[in-house]
Design a protein around this nucleic acid. Structure first.
Lengths: 344, 344
DNA sequence: CTATGCTTTTGAAACGTTTGCAATAGCCAG
DNA sequence: CTGGCTATTGCAAACGTTTCAAAAGCATAG
């Protein structure tokens, strides 16, 4: 026999609903013997508390929300899977579940978020793909609703909780490594969307160049819309076929770097002998694309796990100081970088 | 000003809670004028119904559940991301959200599922990675709780709702294609876990071989545990270095086929000149691994979208005939297959 | 002016839990 | 044996919604 409700369980035990509820919650005021008896009966009858009722009275749903980004037809990367897995792993310790709402179209993303928040579906939400100026952050901050962002705004303003991978540092490291291999003509393939990470990474690169103070160093930047494959290929080719072709090209992220490698191969350019390529993300495909893309591991899964932990903390303690965390990406050295042409 | 509850909204309008509730639900018995007035006020005051209260009284949570599979440290594939995205896309039309529960360890997966079901968190669930004999299917069937499986049991028994990709057909097609290219010595790399798709795909291959009725055709099968990379490599190498090396090797799925390509490259075997390789899944990495893995597209995302649609139907109509759907995978011909060695 | 029938609105119960406050039982000291 | 204290337990309200049954409004017919 199964007990579906607290009432049934209480009747079976000859106790009141109150007592059973408190016993299961482990209140000290209930006699230890009673608590044990109740716990055992609950297990025996397979009692599981009703989430809706609990949420209604406590005002807490026990869920963490995430709005699924709208995606184009082809998703190459395992980003979402890793991110979700990480969130799940981080949440399981706390007993929360994840609720995923989908926006039918990109414009609806804020509306969906608002709906999730206002309907009390979630106690806190996770944001990713943070834009330079992000209306979601403004909305949630204004409502002082718990959230943690994966990524940062361009202007941090009043403060909010975030976790980010240190792209600036990685791009600085990439430059230093390539500079020491003799490269002087650099290329950067970036995107035209107003995403903050674009600035941070390029700033890191610029800073490293400035730090080196070598007037010989040049940086050519190619820009294309993120999801327009054609435009991206064209931008890359313009760089590869230009008069002063860079000897080292850095992709803002792996997908761009992989395009560089593909187009280089098509143009008969040898990587890494004639051209070094470095990416950022460490997609699965990057290991397979010959000669293996040198990149930085963003450890999405670990980041998501930590984000979940931060969010739980925010929900429970409402800290007034922003929690922030900068993860250091690790270099994954594969075959796509080497000495500049002409160097031994 | 915002109206958080029906009561607030009702007071503002000078109506009863009942009327407002019915008006928002679009009941005919409420005067059209009133309905419009209420709808407008709801929009103006940003009223969003409380999910928990609604779920409590209606007995429906409006959620579809999915238990996140426990995963090893390295996930290469974008399977999960595509699957989730597809589910989300399928659900958004119906206004449901997805709830994801995570199991801390593989053994806990059934317990987590049970918890999701018993707590009323979800109105229906999606199952994947179906094993030959699957306790989750038995549990849900026994409770007659709505669910749709991605994949099948070995023995369909009483019937349940499922969607599957027709691996048998794909493997038959793969054989036919390779046979016509002159291949006679075939290899199959498979896994040792009791997953149904392993049988279905191999059965499809066996059937195609039998249909051809050519006594020259041989099939060598190598088996390794799914998540043990070392063992897999060893099994592949045993096949590649055996006395009667196959000229065409089919991987049960892309990851296995990619391993074959990697090991072939390491052994100095040219693909496709000396060895043809075919996979199944069409991972992103498969396009990048030279010379491009010929494989079948399992269109996970589309499958998931349809599964979501089926589940919605099951939740609403409780059909007594099992809904079943077999998706035909499409061949993605790339560079890893060609004429058998010795054929022109 | 009342009875009738129809349209529109409302009061109140219910869903299953948590929790403030009150009640009861048990025990010791006076 | 009684009063008073503490250790337990229970009553009842509340959370925000849906829905049944019934009331109110209102026009038309008798």
């Amino acid at each position: 026999m199964r007990a579906k409700t607290l009432k049934e369980l209480a009747e079976t035990l000859g106790l009141s609903i109150t007592t059973v509820s408190r016993a299961l919650a482990g209140h000290e005021q209930i006699a230890l013997k009673t608590r044990q008896r109740v716990a055992e009966a609950a297990r025996a009858y397979g009692y599981v508390p009703n989430t809706a009722a609990r949420a209604l009275v406590s005002g807490r749903s026990g869920f963490v929300g995430f709005v699924l980004p709208v995606r184009g037809p082809n998703l190459v990367d395992s980003f979402l899977g890793e991110f979700i897995t990480g969130l799940g792993e981080g949440l399981v310790a706390h007993g929360s579940d994840l609720i995923l709402a989908t926006a039918a179209e990109p414009q609806a993303e804020l509306a969906v978020l608002r709906h999730v928040v206002e309907s009390g579906r979630a106690d806190g939400v996770v944001l990713n793909r943070i834009a330079e100026v992000d209306e979601r952050v403004r909305y949630l901050s204004g409502r002082s609703f718990p959230f943690v962002a994966h990524g940062r705004l361009l202007d941090d303003g009043d403060g909010y909780h975030w976790l980010d991978t240190d792209g600036a540092r990685a791009f600085g490291e990439a430059f230093d490594m390539l500079y020491e291999l003799g490269h002087r003509r650099f290329g950067l393939v970036t995107i035209s969307e107003p995403m903050t990470f674009r600035h941070l990474r390029q700033d890191g690169l610029d800073a490293a160049i400035a730090r080196r103070g070598d007037p010989e160093v040049t940086l050519e930047v190619a820009t294309a819309p993120r999801f327009d494959r054609e435009a991206r290929i064209e931008a890359v080719n313009r760089m590869l076929c230009g008069p002063e072709r860079p000897t080292a090209i850095i992709g803002l992220f792996d997908e761009l770097a992989l395009t560089v490698m593909e187009e280089a191969a098509r143009a008969g350019l040898s990587v890494p002998d004639e051209l070094s390529v470095v990416g950022f993300d460490n997609l699965a495909a990057s290991a397979y694309a010959p000669p293996g893309l040198t990149t930085f591991d963003a450890s999405i899964r670990r980041a998501a796990r930590e984000i979940a932990g931060m969010l739980v903390q925010v929900i429970e303690n409402r800290p007034d100081q922003p929690l922030t965390r900068l993860i250091r990406p690790t270099l994954v050295a594969r075959g796509s970088h080497g000495p500049a042409p002409g160097e031994s």
